[in-house]
Design a protein around this nucleic acid. Structure first.
Length: 411
RNA sequence: GUGGCCGUAGCUCAGCUUGGUUAGAGCACCUGGUUGUGGUCCAGGAUGUCGCGGGUUCGAAUCCCGUCGGUCACCCCA
């Protein structure tokens, strides 16, 4: 084999793909129950959508975009995140009033791969658009938490912060700049550089963090409106029973965030990339994209990281309830009809594509991780079938009509 | 973009330090033991450009240089 997947991309193959399928089904179901309609858009956009939406100064735009020119000379970019495109689509739709949208799909960033960081990675997310109400923030934070909960995710922390808005953030940034300047000799070279361009992000630096524990907190500089918005979110989260931890140093790397910022941290996961989801409010994004002032709040969950952190291989998820074993060639046609009946009755069933020895068919059943087998043999003439529980090896003779029910109970 | 580690059978790896007969193991796969019973057990079977290129040497999986790929971390984020 000469071809391997491009650097930083993965073939998601059985049995691992079983956990993916299960995870995405849980996601779709959850989003629907919370009232989020599906939105699907292009996987590439005009480069400007991201350059302006995400922010020219961000790492993502400066170094990580897959940008190319098409045959018409247009500059296009594989989407590095979902929010900017969804907001672009919303603005283009002409919809008035609030809207709740859910999306799901691959994103692309050109980076050096490592555990939990790929060049193509998969995000599911929601955007609650055209509302500035704090309940929307709380609901979005809740849905991410419930998602992890329904997946049986082992240990997760919700980190929450408010970074203010255009009215109050400048005063905070100024206070932070003064503080950081006083600590200049403690900062690493890179932080000294980012101090000039974006002081907020110095707080992200792992090297400098120990020296910055007494840094000014954004929450102490919030204006009245931002402060009450933040308080309402916390109240609502308490009300619905979503635990969170206030994290004054939480700053996100995309420029469009205002007020609310949050992340889901997988605790006890020993890889460096343990943020399995994140999001925030972006009240200025729509205007940045040339539209009217449309507030919004959203989140993105990193499916690759969630499955990595959960340690799921999918090996324990049985893909088949019943394997149909055909004892002799004459019965094959009857068996095929029987198989079709079972499948239409909701049983996950299969058989080998051609006639083989019974032994080989059982081996196939075992390889396919079927939990049960049904033997189509002489008993068929009296409308009976031998069913075998492949876990316990107990088998019994039951009537044809009972097989579908038996198979479902045998899962 | 910077740095550490690793490339040997389909998979996981041993062998490399101290170069030398046919390069090994486990798992997986195939056949049989069981002419209607898998998974377990027993017997047998197939499997390799030792990542690639060059160098040193009588001789290289083993030493040296280069290169490509993977992986982890920094950075940033999902």
């Amino acid at each position: 084999m000469n071809f391997t997947p491009p650097k930083g991309t993965d073939d998601i193959f059985p049995p691992t793909s079983r956990a993916w399928r299960r995870t995405l089904i849980i996601w779709e179901n959850l989003a629907e129950r919370y009232g989020y309609d599906l939105v699907m858009g292009p996987i590439f956009e005009s480069t400007d959508v991201f350059a302006r939406g995400v922010g020219e100064s961000t790492e993502v735009v400066q170094k990580q975009m897959y940008t190319f020119e098409d045959k018409g000379g247009r500059s296009l970019t594989l989407r590095p995140e979902g929010t900017a495109s969804v907001v672009r689509a919303f603005l283009g739709s002409g919809v008035q009033g609030e809207m709740k949208l859910a999306y799901s799909g691959p994103m692309f960033r050109y980076e050096r791969p490592q555990a939990g960081r790929r060049r193509q990675f998969y995000q599911t997310g929601v955007e609650y658009l055209a509302t500035a109400a704090p309940d929307a923030d709380a609901e979005v934070i809740e849905i991410g938490y419930r998602f992890l909960e329904e997946l049986g995710f082992p240990a997760v922390e919700v980190a929450l912060n408010s970074i203010g808005d255009a009215a109050c953030r400048p005063a905070y940034v100024e206070a932070l700049r003064i503080y950081l300047n006083e600590k200049r000799e403690l900062l690493c070279d890179e932080s000294l550089a980012t101090l000039e361009t974006n002081p907020l992000r110095v707080l992200d630096c792992k090297v400098c963090a120990p020296h910055l524990i007494d840094s000014p907190k954004a929450v102490d500089y919030l204006c009245g409106e931002c402060a009450s918005h933040f308080a309402s979110i916390r109240e609502r989260l308490d009300g619905v029973g979503v635990p969170y931890r206030l994290e004054p140093r939480l700053v996100r790397g995309l420029d469009y965030y205002t007020r609310t910022a949050f992340e889901y941290i997988a605790t006890g996961f020993d890889a460096a990339q343990n943020a399995v989801g994140g999001g925030g409010r972006y009240d200025g994004l729509a205007e940045t994209l040339g539209g009217p002032a449309v507030p919004g709040v959203g989140l993105a969950m990193g499916i690759d990281r969630i499955l990595l952190a959960a340690g799921q291989t999918g090996a324990d998820i049985a893909p088949l309830d019943l394997f149909v074993v055909v004892a002799s060639p004459e019965l094959r046609e009857r068996a095929a009809g029987f198989l079709s009946d079972l499948r239409r009755a909701g049983v996950r069933a299969d058989m080998t594509p051609d006639q083989r020895s019974v032994k080989a068919q059982f081996r196939a059943a075992n390889r396919r991780k079927a939990t049960g087998a049904a033997i189509i043999g002489d008993e068929w003439n009296s409308s009976r079938v031998v069913v075998r529980n492949l876990t316990t090896s107990i088998q019994e003779l039951i009537s044809v009509e009972e097989v579908a029910e038996w198979a479902k109970n045998n899962r």
